[in-house]
Design a binder for these strands. Structure first.
Lengths: 235, 235
DNA sequence: CATTGTGAAGTGATTCACAGCA
DNA sequence: TGCTGTGAATCACTTCACAATG
């Protein structure tokens, strides 16, 4: 990488493979993993970067560059061994171990997440569902029952939970977030339309359904020429 | 910027402002909109780029640069008029008009999306729920009832639907996608864990819950040093 | 050979830093 | 004076293009 010049004079020693995987690459590893799994399911044993790239929806140079951050797992003139590469990526992401997840806020979305099979199929085990509404506590969803938010500490500690999912209304999100952090959760997936603040050691990712629609609306508007002074007349 | 001498009254000489908004900026406009709404709700009438930036969770230089793509809506030495800027951003995104949305696949997630109030509160009206499972057709969810996928053409045409949401299993996603496109939908939000191909004129965005968790797991693993047996010391 | 792995070039986004203006 | 709007500098990511190699 072009880190030429060197900043803080000294630490220039590039430990690329271990520390320096670009975020953009990290975000694509699960996509590659899924593509490899699909190939493996179709009994494909070897794939070139081009095959894989098509299967993952990226271009092959990007794919090769991405993989190069992990190590050299390909064979020149041949390609990649599908199962071997799949294992390596799974290991890199951390899917060779199980992860315990708690979901807080068991409304419509929380329900859906609790039942979402896509979590379980990777190594994510939903170990608890929490809600602050005491009327809901005890209710069962799938094979879990809803616990009180007050049990959070106990649940996180005893279940080695490191990932929390927030599916509460926006108004409750920061409080829930603080409690998750206090209980020891250090990665959070937030579905509430709210900006959350967390200490540095906590990772947070946000999924905002209404923002996604708004981004689509922006482009849709451009397409139909509704904005710019072109005669509108939708409909 | 090209606004030299050109204000809003003039014609569309400002090619850049209208056409060239960077994707990264577009993705943040809804965030700014939300921050402005929150400020407005607290009766804040004026905000500096710094205020706004804090409220939106970005830095102020980025916010100012983003806003500069839309036009010149601030006042030097003062800041931005909250309601005025809010309107301008809403207009830019296309939220000054309503958008009809159909949701296909009324399983757990589809249900949750159908009931999600965050859509309606912006200008998104869910006008139809579709499912290919005939046993489900007729069932009611909120104040809508589930229609057959076969009615898609009719629904899209009569309701001027331009946005479709796919919440089906992965195996059905491409077929549903093709049917949406054939019916005239030109923006798609895909929740199915599948790579969809669409013609150029169709915009597609993907929300993948399991990928989000995997990205968190990657970082979580690094934090706990679970993987590589990295010796903490940099050497 | 075919295909990987990677420097180098290219593109896009972010941040800096300050001129220009209310 | 205080803050916006924006060129210039920097940083991050992507793509090119080809030497290295099983």
């Amino acid at each position: 990488m072009t880190n030429a010049g060197g900043r803080k004079g000294g630490r220039a020693r590039v430990e690329r493979a271990e520390r320096g995987i670009p975020e953009a690459t990290v975000a694509r590893l699960p996509v590659y993993l899924r593509a490899l799994t699909a190939l493996s399911d179709r009994d494909v044993t070897t794939a070139s970067s081009e095959d894989l790239a098509v299967s993952a929806g990226v271009n092959s140079a990007k794919l090769r560059k991405d993989l190069s951050y992990l190590g050299t797992y390909g064979t020149r003139g041949v390609g990649y061994d599908v199962d071997y590469l799949r294992y390596q990526i799974a290991r890199e992401i951390g899917l060779t171990q199980d992860w315990s997840v708690v979901i807080v806020g068991i409304g419509n979305l929380g329900h859906a997440l609790a039942n979402y099979s896509g979590f379980a199929s990777r190594g994510f085990r939903v170990t608890a569902l929490l809600d602050s509404d005491e009327a809901r506590v005890g209710e069962s969803v799938g094979d879990l029952h809803i616990s009180s938010l007050d049990d959070l500490d106990e649940i996180v500690r005893s279940g080695s939970v490191s990932i929390g999912v927030i599916a509460t209304p926006a108004a409750a999100a920061q409080i829930v977030c603080d409690r998750l952090v206090a209980a020891g959760v250090s990665s959070i997936l937030n579905f509430a339309p709210a900006l959350l603040s967390v200490p540095d050691h906590v990772d947070i990712r946000k999924v905002d359904l209404s923002i996604e629609l708004q981004i689509l609306a922006f482009h849709e508007q451009r397409k139909t020429g509704a904005l710019t002074g072109i005669k509108a007349g939708t409909g």
